[in-house]
Simulated assay, not measured.
Amino acid sequence: MATTMRQMKSCGIIVMRTEPQLSFLLMQKPNSYDLPKGHIEAGEDEWSCALRELHEETGIEASTLHLDEEFRFTDTYQTRYKRFGGKKVNKTVVIFLAWLKQEVNVKVSEHSSFAWVEWNPPHAIQKKIIDPLLQQLEGYLLEKGFKIIM
């Protein structure tokens, strides 16, 4: 009998700002970058999870953001989880887009640091999740008429 693979879902937000230049927020780990994201909890919808994780990992409040209701990046891949004895799981990552309405102080909790990365596509930061997300975002912004200045 085949056992069904465990399903996991993480939700997060790519935060963009326009000042001092168009840039996006990445969380830094010692050897990699990540987005503020995390696992969905019982009773949460995707947006609630994404906003909770953003606040937990950066201190950024939902009230300081303009949430873009149209952009949604999704990727599903298999990965292994230590907490499940190294078993493979199907992980789905959902990333939303939000724009800062005002300057914020980022308060790092789970990462070593953070960086505002200048928007200058094409980006080559991390092959899994971040690069495909930024590629989709670039297309979305162009479609919306955002002028990307090179």
Rank of each mutant, 00 (worst) to 15 (best):
T64F: 03
H66C: 09
H66S: 14
R83M: 07
L67P: 00
R52P: 05
H55A: 06
E61H: 14
S63W: 02
E56V: 14
H66F: 13
A98Q: 03
I95D: 03
H66P: 01
E53Y: 04
L51I: 13
D68N: 12
A50V: 11
E103C: 00
E53Q: 15
F96M: 11
K87T: 10
N90V: 06
V104D: 01
G85D: 08
W47M: 15
V93R: 13
G85N: 12
R52D: 04
E57C: 02
T74E: 15
Q102L: 01
V104R: 00
G86T: 06
A98I: 07
Q78H: 10
K88W: 05
L100R: 05
K88H: 04
E70L: 07
V106D: 01
H55C: 12
T92R: 13
R52Q: 03
A50R: 08
E69C: 06
A62C: 07
K88G: 00
L67R: 13
D75T: 15
V93T: 15
N90M: 10
E103Q: 11
A50I: 07
S63I: 07
T92Q: 13
F84R: 04
R72G: 02
K82V: 11
F96N: 08
Y81Q: 12
A50Q: 03
E46R: 05
G86S: 02
D68K: 05
S48Y: 05
E69Q: 13
V89D: 03
G85S: 08
E103W: 00
E70W: 05
Y81V: 13
E53C: 04
L65F: 05
